[in-house]
Design a protein around this nucleic acid. Structure first.
Lengths: 211, 211, 211, 211
DNA sequence: GATGAATGAGAGTTCATTCAT
DNA sequence: CATGAATGAACTCTCATTCAT
């Protein structure tokens, strides 16, 4: 394996980071095409045009490669979504931005998202327990969504009738469902679908004036 | 392999069907516990308390076992849900029955659903294409839902403002999402969640009296 | 791996035991010729004229194969030596029989002893600690020797001047040294050497009449 | 690889020798702790705090490193033992000095001796033949011992009844056995053991006055 | 009907070695 | 002098499948 660098120095050289990204990209390609179960190191290496040992050199093992793939994409998604949500004011607009930017990211990175989904659902640690697909995992992910919903209710923008956590889960489900379709259907119209989803949750969160 | 039965004769003996169900049940157990990737025939056989060769004898191969697992569960789900939806009148009540019976089935057969999900997402044919997780697959599944929604709109029970297909997909997403949570969270409260989902889609499909 | 047999039945079939012995014999051959470090499963399988997977089928892993090799030879040695020591009376004669039968066994099974030595010195468990080459291991081995020496001192056959444990170790060293030579030197004369060793320890254990 | 020095010039610079000794020391450490089979160049380099390539630069390959390790230790042992044996007069005293200094060296350099033993027993050349553990190897080692014994017999200090070569081998066995125990048993009392061994061979070599 | 035995391909991983910088 | 990067072979182990009994 790659020897640990001396302490104090920068952890990884530029060229090494590039290799890691290249390998992860190849893994994404293979997984999104052939599925997690067929994504052997040999195949990933072949796709990247490198020797199998290179992967072992840059990653501690297959698990680390897969873990890094997931983490990298989570970060990318966060970097895409956060500013878009943060740049608007008002819970309703933020919710709209959240849904829209999520779906936009998925549409723009469908292969990556496909691979991510596959890894998240299949990767397990040595004990056989899922590494990512856990109750804790979801809790972390929906935090910003719950915040928006709670703030919207507090501000009187949203009806107080729904449970923010349950609603956040439903919104996540709609987004994840859209991701699945974007993956499975080559000419899936994400823009139209985004409009549908936004309207859906606009209706369900709307404060009814008087009934 | 099992010899083909004589033409015209009954397809499978009772005892053979029992064996097949036993093997499928063992497969469900193993997959839901250890994941699709770790569900080897050896492990399934061990779990069923039989020899590995028995599986090969009763199924053409691992793929057929997995395929039968999926089909059997689809049938079971249909047998559970269909009468519950068919026994009520009115689109709104049917939609409610659809959601409720789906979630009820999931809650009562969580392990089976977990295994099914795992297989559907991972099983691929020789070409590497997903056998179940395809656009066609979803289309078939949401047919009854689309029918309910379309009928409801035609009857004036639902607002005409939504696209029945898109709405059906969203309802499926909510159900699938609930399934995921039932699988991941040991003490997931499906009854409460069902109420939340029902209300959600009641609101979004409701005909607004006058605005 | 070989499935665990049903409880109550005999643990291993005759044919399986034969295979295991065959594989162990092949391992002995390879190790004694090429050394422990070169004794890969592939090479052992090739030497046995079987497929690589057969070894994995009959043994839980390489470690178990090596462990069984050691155990089997320890048992064989015990079965050879014990009756020869037990059939004579008197500590002096027993000591002579012990040395002579040990060296006789080594001469008659040089290859096996060579392999055994190699495995004992090299095999380690997952933590990196030697599995056989430990202080405890030697203690167990020299027990019968210590017993003979102690009994001989008690009976007045041996001089009380030596420490039985230390002397037992020295005798073991002489035997182990002879084993090494039998392994390394193709035409090593074990009979002559045995006479030398017997005389050596006869002198050192002899009770001096009067000084 | 390191360029060959110009003919006539000094063979190796001081700094280079230091590097070689450092690498050998690291190899000793790793081998004595983890065993020959686990002593990869990567591990040795890591232990030495250097890059893997450095080893390749200073040694032609792993074999040369191991060979040098053995040779260096043989020399060290010789430098320790020879003057101690040479400084006394009389075969009996020399024999005593030989045994004592051997065991003393082992006690003072247990790790080194452990590594040496491991390498000697495992290192083989390309043909698969042991590089050090051969009949020739032993013959060279016991030469000084045979000389002492022969001289002692000629001078009438030792009884003429034993074969000097056979007795030398037995003495070597006792020393090697002590080394094994020093390696395996953390709190092995070498001083006591040395006394035991010295007395043992004093008795067996002693000239009986009259019988 | 069912089993144990065997196969051979492919998995992830380790490693000594080579080489450009 | 030294390094990081890469290779390719060999390793152990797992697995779906086949087959004689």
């Amino acid at each position: 394996m790659r020897p640990e660098n001396s302490p104090g120095g920068q952890r990884r050289s530029f060229i090494e980071e590039a290799r890691r990204r290249q390998i992860i990209a190849a893994a994404v390609e293979v997984i999104s095409e052939a599925g997690y179960g067929s994504a052997s190191l040999a195949r990933i290496a072949q796709h990247a045009g490198i020797s199998k040992g290179v992967i072992s050199y840059h990653f501690a093992g297959k698990d680390e490669l897969m873990t890094q793939l997931v983490i990298q994409l989570y970060i990318s998604a966060g970097e895409y979504i956060a500013p878009r949500v943060g740049s608007v004011r008002g819970a309703r607009k933020q919710l709209h931005a959240y849904i829209d930017s999520n779906l936009g990211f998925i549409a723009a990175n469908t292969k990556y998202v496909a691979a991510l989904t596959d890894v998240v659902l299949n990767l397990r640690d040595a004990d056989g327990r899922p590494r990512f697909a856990s109750a804790d995992g979801e809790r972390d992910i929906i935090v910003p969504l719950v915040d928006i919903l709670t703030a919207g209710q507090a501000a009187g923008e949203f009806t107080p009738e729904f449970d923010p956590v349950a609603m956040a889960k439903s919104i996540r489900d709609a987004i994840d469902g859209a991701a699945g379709r974007a993956i499975r259907e080559p000419d899936f119209d994400m823009v139209a679908y985004s409009a549908h989803v936004c309207r859906l949750f606009e209706v369900t969160t709307r404060k009814v004036e008087r009934e």
